[in-house]
Every structure is written in structure tokens, then in C-alpha cells.
């Protein structure tokens, strides 16, 4: 398709990439974030041990300091009270945290995005109904709603995701509605109406692609928000189950030993969580600047 690229003149992706790369900190954030995703995906192949396989764990290695040499491997970040390698535990925890964050964000984005688009395009009662619910929900703290939902639904990764989706869809609905209300009045939408294009096609083929840039920005930042919400729930013991611990649950498990001096059991998972959230926010902030045409020179 070399001819096609030439035909297009400017390649919008290349412009986008070079704009993004202007801020070095954002590039660093992106590199770290990609590395974390890789670590999470490939955890089973790269970690020194599978911390949830009882055959690989030596219970006698419980709460060893970082750098200790165990019976089979070196524990670079120490071990927890069960004798699990903390580095391996963090990689596996990252897996759960990122998966929950990404899944809930994706579902909330699609759901909230579609509802916000419908609200803006059809207006009237549809709009009032959808946006009243969204406003009501946004007037309560997210963690409060998540807490109530999780305690009502019970424990489990799926329940946590449902709660996070319920908390987050309103952000997307509100964001996309604002953009869509402006886009909907543009003449290209009138032209499509005049050409007897169906509502469904106008909403998804014409309106949606013009409303997604701000949604991507909100989505990136919301991944971080979802991950920290999930960590909070798990820290409180009502999030993901013990069989699939996330970073939040690892922090909770080590928290009891903080005061007795075995800081690492809680500290390293906490550090991993912090790095994850900061790197996502760096990427999100730069995306907002690059995708916001008003800030462009």
C-alpha cells in the first residue's frame, strides 16, 4: 500500500507521534507503561516462580529480606509470609490489576460512549433521562458507589468489573455528549440526513469518529482511576479473591507486617501500583495536549 500512503500526502499518525514525542517525560511514561503491560502479559514465562503453584513455594522461606537466597532461587524483592517470591507476585498482581482496569474501562467506554452519543443526537427525553442518571451518579464519590455495589454483588473479578463499569460510564457519557452536541450541529450531519442515511449510520459512522479524541484522553486517565479503585476495594478486602490477587491485595497482605519492620512485603507492590498510575497519567496528560486542537500552534 505504498502508493496509498503517498497519495494521502500527510500521514496523520506520523504527525501525531512526533507531537506526542515532544514531551520526554510522556515518552518515558509510555515506555514504562508498555513495559508493565508486557510484564503482566508474559508473567507466566518470565517470573522466577509461579507464586500460586504450591509445589514451587517453600513455606520455610517466609518473609525473607530482599536479596535473600532461597532454596531454589534468589528473592530479589524478598518474600511474603507464605514464602512466595514477591517479584513474581507483583508481576502476577499487575496482571490482575491491569486486566481489571482495562476491561472495566473498555466496557464503560463503549457503554457510556454509546449512551452519550444517543443522548446528544436524539436530544429531548432520551437526553434528559440519560444525563439525569449520569449527573446523579457523578454527584456521589466513585469509591462510595463501588463499595456499595461490590458489597451487594459479592466478591469476584467479574463483580469488581461490573461495579467499576457502573461507576465509570457516566464520565464517558458526559464527555462524548459535550463533543457530540457541537458536532451534531455541523453541516456534514445535515448533509447525511439529507442523503437519507439512517440514524444508526449517522451516529456510528459520522458522529462517533469525530467525538472520540476527548474520549481517548478520558479513557487513559480512567484506566489509572479504575486500577486505583480496584486496589482500594481489594485493600479493604472486598475486591478480587485471594486466588487472583491484584496489587491492592498484595499491599493488604503485607500491611500487617509493616510495623514489625518487614516493610517490603507491602512496599514493593505499593511502589509498582504507584509507578503504574503515574506512567498512565503521564501518557494521558500528553494525549490530552496533543489531541486538543486549541493548544496546537
Amino acid at each position: 500500500m505504498a502508493a496509498a500512503v503517498q497519495d494521502d500526502g500527510i500521514n496523520p499518525w506520523r504527525t501525531f507521534a512526533s507531537d506526542f514525542a515532544e514531551k520526554k517525560l510522556a515518552v518515558l511514561g509510555l515506555i514504562v507503561f508498555v513495559a508493565l503491560i508486557a510484564a503482566a502479559i508474559f508473567a507466566p514465562w518470565i517470573t522466577p516462580q509461579n507464586p500460586y503453584d504450591l509445589n514451587q513455594i517453600d513455606f520455610l522461606d517466609g518473609r525473607l529480606e530482599p536479596g535473600s537466597v532461597g532454596s531454589q532461587i534468589t528473592y530479589w524483592l524478598g518474600t511474603d509470609d507464605q514464602g512466595r517470591d514477591l517479584l513474581s507476585g507483583i508481576f502476577y498482581g499487575l496482571r490482575t490489576s491491569l486486566a481489571v482496569g482495562a476491561a472495566s474501562t473498555l466496557i464503560a467506554l463503549v457503554l457510556g460512549g454509546a449512551l452519550g452519543l444517543f443522548a446528544a443526537y436524539f436530544g429531548g427525553r432520551v437526553d434528559t433521562l440519560i444525563m439525569r442518571i449520569a449527573d446523579l451518579q457523578l454527584s456521589f464519590p466513585a469509591i462510595l458507589i463501588a463499595l456499595i455495589l461490590v458489597s451487594a454483588l459479592g466478591q469476584g473479578v467479574d463483580k469488581v468489573i461490573i461495579s467499576l463499569v457502573a461507576v465509570q460510564w457516566a464520565y464517558y457519557a458526559r464527555t462524548i455528549r459535550g463533543t457530540a452536541l457541537v458536532e451534531r450541529r455541523k453541516e456534514y450531519v445535515e448533509a447525511a440526513t439529507c442523503l437519507a442515511i439512517s440514524h444508526r449510520r449517522i451516529v456510528f459512522k459520522h458522529l462517533m469518529p469525530n467525538c472520540t479524541p476527548p474520549l481517548i484522553v478520558v479513557g487513559t486517565v480512567q484506566v489509572a482511576h479504575a486500577i486505583s479503585l480496584e486496589a482500594t476495594l481489594s485493600f479493604l478486602g472486598i475486591g478480587v479473591p485471594i486466588t487472583e490477587p491484584s496489587l491492592g491485595l498484595l499491599i493488604k497482605n503485607g500491611f500487617d507486617y509493616m510495623l514489625s519492620g518487614d516493610y517490603w512485603v507491602s512496599f514493593y507492590p505499593g511502589l509498582a501500583l504507584l509507578i503504574t498510575i503515574v506512567s498512565i497519567n503521564l501518557v494521558g496528560d500528553q494525549l490530552r495536549d496533543v489531541l486538543n486542537p486549541r493548544l496546537k500552534k
Binding site: K186, Y188, A191, C194, H206, P209
Partner: peptide, 20 residues
């Protein structure tokens, strides 16, 4: 009949979908 009556718009920028 809807297709038989068409419209040309004033704004040569807003009247074309920039993503298509």
C-alpha cells in the same frame, strides 16, 4: 423523494466529514 431534493451548504469545511 428525499434523494431527489438535495442541498449544497455554505461552509466548505463544516459540510464535509473530516474523518472520511
Amino acid at each position: 423523494v428525499a434523494l431527489k431534493v438535495q442541498m449544497i451548504f455554505q461552509d466548505p469545511f463544516a459540510s464535509l466529514n473530516p474523518r472520511l
